[in-house]
């Protein structure tokens, strides 16, 4: 069964892609495309904050397209987490919060990780795969 989640991105506060991973066979991107999408999203997110008619807007949270949903979560530090998933997928916001939790645990508490740099932490990958696998059951249905 293909997961409903296509891919997961983490971008640092200056818009650089620091983590990217495909889940399932649909919607795979090559390295250039993933970098492009990440920086594009970063700028769009920043512009949306300025353009928003409501006060205290933190940027786009959900982008609904014909073929995918893009859900974004921005941490207080400016690090953005977003997933691309099948249209109409539920529970993506809580998935992102959980991903944030894992990031805080296995990336920030790792003495060998440099802040704002690409994430290469074995434990983070491992627990992320577990989380997505567990979530497949919940979101997938």
């Amino acid at each position: 069964m293909a997961s409903n989640v296509y891919n997961l991105f983490i971008i640092n506060k200056s818009g650089g892609l620091i983590f990217y991973k495909d889940y399932g066979s649909l919607g795979r991107l090559d390295t250039n495309d993933s970098l492009r999408l990440a920086s594009l999203w970063h700028s769009m997110h920043a512009i949306s904050q300025q353009l928003s008619p409501t006060l205290g807007c933190y940027g786009i949270e959900l982008l609904e397209a014909d073929t995918f949903d893009l859900r974004c979560f921005q941490a207080l530090t400016g690090t953005k987490f977003f997933v691309v998933a099948e249209p109409g997928t539920q529970g993506l916001d809580s998935l992102l919060k959980n991903v944030y939790g894992l990031y805080v645990d296995y990336v920030l508490k790792n003495p060998f990780y440099e802040v704002e740099m690409p994430i290469r932490c074995e434990l983070f990958d491992l627990s992320l795969t577990q989380l997505i696998r567990k979530d497949k059951g919940v979101i997938g249905r």
């Binding site: 645990d105 296995y106 790792n110 003495p111 060998f112 434990l123």
Partner: peptide, 14 residues
């Protein structure tokens, strides 16, 4: 618990 040692550090263990 939260530490992943990078490959280039070999067998280093905290």
């Amino acid at each position: 618990r939260f530490i992943s040692v990078p490959k280039d550090m070999g067998a280093f263990n905290c």
